[in-house]
Structures are given as structure tokens and as C-alpha cells.
Design a binder for these strands. Structure first.
Length: 468
RNA sequence: GCCCGCUUAGCUCAGCGGUUAGAGCAUCUGGCUGUUAACCAGAGGGUCGCAGGUUCGAAUCCUGCAGCGGGCGCCA
């Protein structure tokens, strides 16, 4: 590089925000494409700070065509110093007339897998280390990062305390869901007792340990002192689910509020999601426009409708009646007490309501033990939020705070009370009504980005049989 | 876990019993050119996912396996 001094580094985003005519600048990024003519070459440079590219003009009288053609291919990384010229009559508002450049890293065009167009999301999933070089994934991960911030902002501004619940948990203090076991025992020779049981007292914690499937139980304990808390972290499920909506490692947000009943919690859930949609619309206009053009033609309409319309709230019993009156023949028959199947939920959301639906007061036998039993003796104060295109985004409930009712339900389900001592303690000492819900980050991102597979909204996905 | 579909050039795909397997883009070569998914011409590039089988003949039909995708279940 002959001329680096006097060329301050600016990102492409900074140049778009404040273009200064005839300014000497250096900018750095990756080559999206190159076009060569007799006297100049054009390079489209991107750097991840914006979806827009910067056109670099390389005059052959300053930089030889031979060098350009040998070094600059799609994917190569460069630092370019030059002078910014405004070009209001051209397709781009300005361009950088290069004085010189440094080649940081070449990209062999014979082997570099990315081209300037037309890659399937399936193909890009196979090269998750490189897919972030595409505008699609830059848009998605930019939104993911921004939404994560918006989630913290939402709760922090409302007095919720961000708490860290354990990733490693003891064996049976979780609800349903298959667990990943964590051990330091040698798998090639697991220590056993004579009767064939594993000698867990020799394992790291002296007993079995697993990756968490939810921070809820610990979240409840913390809410019993802090009032309103939320967790935001990774969660693990060892279910071999082969669907576009499931991951083995995913991120979940779980608020838990002392003194909240079911209605207050549903209000919070709806307001929370609406807030995220509005945040996305106001902070990611460029990204959403790109994703709409490329993937989901109705994306902005869908997002805007969330802003304006309330969610439809139906009790489980009402939902069953709607389904029975629909005249539809469903694969799974509809009767009070059945669990709602995907086809039922899809009918309610996409045909009946045509907007997000909240279903509440489910039969107790299809829901978890900790959900608060209603006066009718049949239902519990649980709710799900169902979204178009995505399905269930939130599941939550008012928790059973009455010690006797909780114990009775647990005994009914043959649960081991001993391993829930700390959980039960919160009902023995100063128990209060409280509620919470869990929101799957990746599922919300499907709705926000127009993607259809959760593997495309997390940088490196982990699913059964696949570690990208 | 069950069901369905796909797998042909670096990428996206066509070909679905019959000569040496095709296109667009990408790559390379040449031409043209302040270009905008630049353009024009030419070239290279494929044991048609793998293993069997049927047939005079298989990318094409059958079986098994694998990978990927989708539907269902479980859920967030």
C-alpha cells in the first residue's frame, strides 16, 4: 500500500450516513462482484455494516488491469483507499475512486462456493461458516441481534430483573422433554455397581446432570424474591424432531412475575410481541424490505397488521366449538379434551381469525403439573400464543401457588416430591399468585424475517443428527 | 419415531427405457465496453448420491442404504 496515510478508515455504513464529496477515505470489506472495462474496473464491496454495497472504481492507469484480474474475485477481502465522488445521476449515489488497495485475503474463484446470486437456503445451510457473507444472512443475523437487544430493553424498562438460571441441572427437576446428559464418566468404561446401576457418585456432581430444558422452575424461585424476572439464554432438547420449527439448541425468553394472574400475563405477552414487531419495523427497514423482496412477499403487511390488530383470545372450550362448527373434516377428530393438533391450530389462526390467536384455559390432563387449577376442576390457567405461518410462539400459565393443590396434582401424576423440595418450599413460605411464559426466539424470528426454517435464523444450528 | 418427496457440471435445474447427457449462471480464453445480475463469442468442467437387481440396452424401471427437504407427532 503506497498511500495509507491521510486516508481515515470508514465503514460503508458510515459513508452512506454521511457521504462527503471528494473526501479521502479508506474502506474495507469483501468483494461481491467485479466488472472490468477497458479503462477501469468496478468492484462492489460489502462489509456487513449495511446491506448496501459500495461501488469501487479502479482506474487501470493507477492499478493495472492484470493485477486486478489476478487478485480481485468474488469473496476476496480488500482495504481500498481513494476519493469519494458523488454520482447523483448514476445507479448509486456515490462511489470510491481508488488510489490503491491492499489484498487482505484472496478467494480462489475455482473453489469459493458463493457466487453473486441464486443460492438455495438448503445449500447455504451446508456452509454455515460462509453463509454470513450473503446479504440474506446478514439481514437475518442483524435482526436477531437487534431483537435480542429489544427484548432486554423491553423488560428492563418495565422493572424486570434479568436473571441467569443454570444451564446444568440435576436429573429430575425439569418438566417433560428429553434431556442431554452431561457426564465426565468415561464412556468406554462406565463405573457400575454390582447390581448394574451406574455409579453416579463417581460422576462430576456426584449424581446425574443434564442440560436444561427450561429455566422456568428456577425463574419461579427467583421471582418469589425479585418480583418480576426474565431469563434469556440457550435451552436444550434431545428430542429427535425433524421439522423446520425445532432445534436441539435454541434460545428462549422466560419472564416470570409474582402477583400476576393469567389475564395480566396474556396482556404482557401480547404487548411484548407487538413491541418486538414495532422495534423491527422501525429499526430494520432496509433488512425487512430485502427479505420481503427475496422471500416473503407479504412480510411487511403481516408485521404491520400485528401493530394494528389485537390478538383473538379464545378459551380452549370456545376454540373446540369453533372447530366443531367449522364443517371441516380434520384428520384428528375434535372433541373437548383432545390436544389441539397442528391442523386445528392452523385453521384457527389462518382461516378463522386471520391474525394471532391466544388460547387459554386448557384441560388439565394435557398440560404440565405446575399450572394453576381452575375452579371448574377440569381446566388449568394455561395459554398458548399461535401465529400465522409459525404456529406456537409462546406457551405460558399462571402457576399453582396453593401448596395442597400442587401436592395433590403431583401425587396424582406419581411425581417424586423429594426432588422438588425447593420448588415446594416457595409454596410453603409466603406463596403468592404468579405467572410466566416462555417465548422461542427462533420462532419469533421466523415471523419477523419471513424465513420458514429455524435453522436459517440461528448462526450455527444444532439439530438431531446435524451440527452445522 | 412414522409418512412423502428429492439427489444429474461449482450453483440453479431440464432430460424420465434407445446413439458420444443438456441449458442458464459461475470459471477460463478472446472481443467489446463508465459497468450496474454488464454484454458477445469460444473452451474446460459430469464414473447422473452409493450398492445391488431387471433389460439387448438404465440418469430413466425395481430393491436396499445414505444425505437433504417437507408433512405428522413432541414442543418453544
Amino acid at each position: 500500500m503506497s498511500q495509507t496515510e491521510g486516508y481515515p478508515y470508514k465503514t460503508i455504513s458510515e459513508l452512506y450516513n454521511h457521504p462527503i464529496a471528494e473526501e479521502k477515505v479508506m474502506t474495507k470489506g469483501w468483494v461481491r462482484t467485479r466488472r472490468t472495462t477497458r479503462t477501469v474496473s468496478f468492484v462492489e464491496l460489502v462489509d456487513g455494516t449495511t446491506l448496501r454495497s459500495l461501488q469501487i472504481v479502479l482506474p487501470h492507469e493507477k492499478i493495472s488491469q492484470e493485477r486486478i484480474e489476478a487478485e480481485i474475485h468474488t469473496g476476496a477481502s480488500l482495504a481500498v483507499s481513494g476519493i469519494l465522488m458523488l454520482t447523483p445521476t448514476r445507479a448509486q449515489p456515490f462511489e470510491l475512486i481508488a488510489e490503491d488497495y491492499i489484498l487482505y485475503g484472496p478467494a480462489d474463484p475455482q473453489s469459493y462456493p458463493l457466487q453473486k446470486k441464486n443460492h438455495s437456503l438448503e445449500f447455504l445451510r451446508e456452509i454455515s461458516h460462509l453463509r454470513v457473507r450473503t446479504r440474506t444472512f446478514q439481514a437475518i443475523f442483524r435482526i436477531r441481534g437487534g431483537i435480542s437487544f429489544a427484548i432486554h430493553k423491553y423488560f428492563q424498562e418495565r422493572g424486570f430483573v434479568y436473571v441467569h438460571t443454570p444451564i446444568l441441572t440435576p436429573s429430575d427437576c425439569e418438566g417433560a422433554g428429553q434431556l442431554f446428559q452431561v457426564t465426565t464418566l468415561p464412556l468406554y468404561r462406565v463405573p457400575m455397581h454390582p447390581d448394574g446401576r451406574v455409579a453416579y457418585e463417581k460422576d462430576f456432581f456426584g449424581k446425574p446432570a443434564y442440560l436444561t430444558v427450561s429455566g422456568q422452575l428456577e425463574g419461579e424461585l427467583l421471582a418469589m424474591g425479585l418480583g418480576k424476572i426474565y431469563t434469556f439464554g440457550p435451552t436444550f432438547r434431545a428430542e429427535p424432531s425433524h421439522t423446520p420449527r425445532h432445534l436441539a439448541e435454541f434460545w428462549m425468553i422466560e419472564p416470570e412475575m409474582a402477583f400476576y394472574d393469567l389475564d395480566m400475563t396474556i396482556d404482557l405477552a401480547e404487548d411484548f410481541i407487538r413491541h418486538l414487531v414495532i422495534y423491527s419495523l422501525t429499526h430494520f427497514e432496509e433488512e425487512l424490505a430485502f427479505l420481503q423482496e427475496r422471500y416473503e412477499k407479504n412480510l411487511l403487511n403481516e408485521l404491520n397488521s400485528i401493530k394494528e390488530e389485537n390478538f383473538l383470545r379464545l378459551s380452549y372450550t370456545e376454540a373446540i366449538e369453533v372447530l366443531q362448527r367449522s364443517g371441516r373434516s380434520f384428520q384428528y377428530p375434535v372433541e373437548w379434551g383432545c390436544d389441539l393438533q397442528a391442523e386445528h391450530e392452523r385453521y384457527l389462526v389462518e382461516e378463522y381469525a386471520r391474525r394471532p390467536v391466544v388460547i387459554y384455559n386448557y384441560p388439565k390432563h394435557i398440560k404440565a403439573f405446575y399450572m394453576r387449577q381452575n375452579e371448574d376442576g377440569k381446566t388449568v390457567a394455561a395459554f398458548d400464543v399461535l401465529f400465522p405461518r409459525v404456529g406456537e410462539v409462546i406457551g405460558g400459565s399462571q402457576r399453582e401457588e396453593r401448596y395442597d393443590k400442587l401436592i395433590a396434582r403431583m401425587q396424582e401424576l406419581n411425581m417424586d416430591l423429594f426432588s422438588y423440595q425447593s420448588y415446594l418450599d416457595t409454596r410453603r413460605y409466603g406463596s403468592v399468585p404468579h405467572s410466566g411464559f416462555g417465548l422461542g426466539l427462533e420462532r419469533v424470528l421466523l415471523f419477523l424475517t419471513g424465513m420458514t426454517n429455524v435453522r436459517d435464523v440461528i448462526p450455527f444450528f444444532r439439530a438431531a443428527g446435524q451440527m452445522a
